[in-house]
Design a protein around this nucleic acid. Structure first.
Lengths: 152, 152
DNA sequence: GGCTCTAGCCGGGGAATCGCCGGTATATTG
DNA sequence: CAATATACCGGCGATTCCCCGGCTAGAGCC
């Protein structure tokens, strides 16, 4: 905290969200900075925890998981360890959001087939009642913020 | 298509999903391959579209978007262009899944504050009725598949 | 078997990059 | 004003990248 990010930092974040594997020199060129200054800023963003990592994005269909679903889980109990264990074990569960509302958890799940999805949902139903919606398409795979937040 | 991925390809995918900015030499060391063979495989995975990109992962709170919400949108019409335009313009909308079920769209939205979230939801409500759930926490920011799908 | 073709891997060498150091200009502080 | 801190640049050796040719194993064919 709590140095806010200046426009150059935002430019770096935008570029690295677009392509995280460009060289630091190339990144410097794009944000009009020398390579060493760029390196310094990126290191700073990493050590401040602003950038938490770099991930390759994979086409789920092409790696054998063509079925994508959103599963909402109504979880009455308060024993969360077994669920967390399942999340760790099952890399088919891509994302797990704990939310307000009746459905305490919203999960994004990838499956190889409908039987596979059924099996996954069955495992989740051990914990509570589930609502499953299949995903037709997703607009962008993922995107992060591109501009500083307006202070209201 | 449709060369399936061998164990070495999967090892590469796992490593690049964990840290997409390691050098190709280091990646080669981790998967027990020479740098040039590793490069060749990575290029192949990219050109096949298995790897669709590399993204820096950003801490939303630290860049000024501490409020995360799941918004489900019931969209009766079939005019999707205005919605798609909103998605492109508003980088606060991180993800948009079109799904089966009553709520045609499930969105993941980041906001700077509750008033900001309200404004975003108002914009979405132009298109249909919305259901909003705030996110307390998310287990892992994101994760992709780590193993080949079992063929059933 | 013997031949060819191909896929996949290795190694090498020049160009580019990385990591680290010192030096400079501006702003802040005592 | 002096001292410190911040952010930047440039330069140097070590590493990595990129592209090439060569090697080996396996498939297909005669």
């Amino acid at each position: 905290m709590t140095e806010s990010l200046d426009p150059t930092d935002w430019a770096i974040l935008v570029e690295l969200q677009r392509d995280a594997r460009i060289s630091l020199s190339e990144l410097g060129r794009r944000v009009s900075l020398s390579a060493s200054a760029t390196t310094e800023r990126v290191r700073r963003l990493e050590s401040l925890g602003v950038v938490t990592g770099y991930r390759a994005e994979v086409d789920l269909t092409k790696v054998g998981y063509p079925v994508l679903a959103v599963v909402r889980l109504k979880y009455p109990g308060n024993k969360h360890e077994p669920l967390h264990r399942l999340l760790r074990e099952r890399s088919e569960i891509l994302e797990c959001l704990r939310t307000t509302g009746d459905d305490c958890y919203t999960l994004k799940v990838a499956a190889a087939s409908m039987p596979h999805l059924e099996e996954l949902v069955n495992e989740l139903t051990e914990f509570g009642s589930t609502t499953t919606n299949l995903v037709y398409s997703q607009t962008q795979p993922y995107r992060g913020p591109q501009t500083p937040a307006k202070t209201l």
